[in-house]
Amino acid sequence: MNDFAAETERYRRELLAHCYRMLGSVDDAEDAVQETYLRAWRAYDAFEGRSSVRNWLYRIATNACRSALTHHSRRFLPSGLAGPADDPMAPTVSAAETRWVQPIPDSMLDPAAIVAGREGLRIALIAALQALPGRQRAVFILRDVLGWSAADVAQVMDTSTAAVKSMLQRARARLAEEPPDLDRPSARDGSIGLDGVLAHYIAAVEHADGAALERLLRVDARIEATPWRTWFSGRATCVPYLTHQVLGSPGDWRLLPTRANGQPAAAGYYRGSAYGILVLDPTPTGIGRITAFGDAALVQRFGFPATL
């Protein structure tokens, strides 16, 4: 057992990131990693070293995720259900029964992997991946996100390199039909400063300052908030929506800074009770996207209390 732990434990965090990309949920990803290590422990004595331990674990983890996908429906963001709303004053429409994509705390991931693969963790990509069949999804993640060779991917997937190339081609074509919104360059910590953007955003929300939020948002910014299917694209609708339906009065909201998916984020509280996690996508010209996950349980998952 000591040999098993010494050989495998170093890969736990990167396997969690892999399972998260596959499943779109931090809860499901943790379950898949637990299942991976259980299966690996049971099979460890029979492991013959024909591949690296890392590849062997990825194979088990990928199979665990594909098995999980057969039992669950696809996860979405609001933008995956319908087009943007054009009336910021109209009541928002709930889609409470939908299985939503979840954010993942940076604290659960390997810091080096976050720096190297930040684009591969962004919420928009995680949501887009959910449209791919399990095998295509795994191949795309291993080849295009993690940069594995076709031969290594074939070993993990128990198939040929020709089949890997074919699945990757189909996955790329499918994603090209509805490309994830990833072409906006993310702000780097040394340019406009991610922490500074988050601090200004927190101040604007806590002071219910719609004008300050308008200055922070890009002209083409979008706002999505689960569990609502209603979402908005463009500052002209985002700002009135925030001002009239979200912000309330100064002091209603309290936001605590955190990090999710390699991006600045905040744990949100409304009048002292946990609301959920808000993830920002800052760019050199302003905040391009705010994705709010209205799930109080996520606040505790990120290490914050249920109430303030």
Score class of each variant (00 low, 15 high):
121 L>H: 08
129 L>P: 01
142 L>M: 15
145 V>C: 00
121 L>Y: 09
148 W>A: 03
103 P>Y: 12
104 I>Q: 14
147 G>Y: 05
125 L>C: 06
134 G>Q: 09
137 R>N: 12
145 V>L: 05
128 A>T: 02
139 V>I: 13
99 R>W: 09
99 R>D: 13
131 A>W: 08
129 L>Q: 00
130 Q>M: 14
92 T>V: 10
128 A>D: 11
125 L>M: 10
126 I>M: 14
136 Q>A: 15
94 S>K: 01
131 A>I: 09
124 A>G: 00
146 L>P: 01
141 I>K: 01
133 P>I: 15
118 R>K: 11
144 D>E: 13
109 L>S: 10
105 P>D: 13
147 G>D: 09
96 A>K: 03
129 L>G: 07
144 D>V: 01
112 A>E: 13
122 R>W: 01
140 F>C: 06
127 A>H: 02
140 F>W: 15
91 P>M: 03
148 W>L: 10
98 T>D: 07
101 V>G: 09
124 A>K: 01
99 R>C: 06
131 A>C: 11
140 F>Q: 02
112 A>S: 12
120 G>Y: 00
141 I>F: 11
135 R>C: 06
111 P>Y: 02
121 L>Q: 12
146 L>Y: 07
96 A>R: 06
150 A>M: 02
138 A>L: 14
126 I>H: 04
126 I>C: 02
123 I>K: 06
101 V>L: 10
142 L>H: 12
112 A>Y: 04
150 A>I: 02
145 V>A: 00
131 A>K: 13
100 W>N: 07
141 I>A: 08
129 L>I: 06
131 A>E: 13
114 I>M: 09
90 A>I: 08
106 D>C: 01
94 S>L: 09
104 I>E: 07
115 V>A: 13
137 R>I: 15
130 Q>A: 11
129 L>M: 08
148 W>Q: 10
144 D>Q: 09
123 I>L: 02
95 A>T: 07
140 F>P: 03
149 S>D: 02
119 E>L: 12
99 R>M: 13
106 D>K: 00
113 A>W: 10
105 P>I: 12
120 G>L: 00
114 I>A: 08
99 R>S: 15
148 W>D: 05
127 A>L: 06
133 P>Y: 11
132 L>T: 08
146 L>Q: 06
87 D>N: 09
113 A>P: 03
100 W>D: 04
90 A>D: 05
146 L>G: 04
125 L>H: 05
128 A>S: 12
119 E>S: 14
92 T>P: 07
130 Q>H: 11
121 L>M: 11
136 Q>L: 14
93 V>T: 14
124 A>C: 01
113 A>K: 03
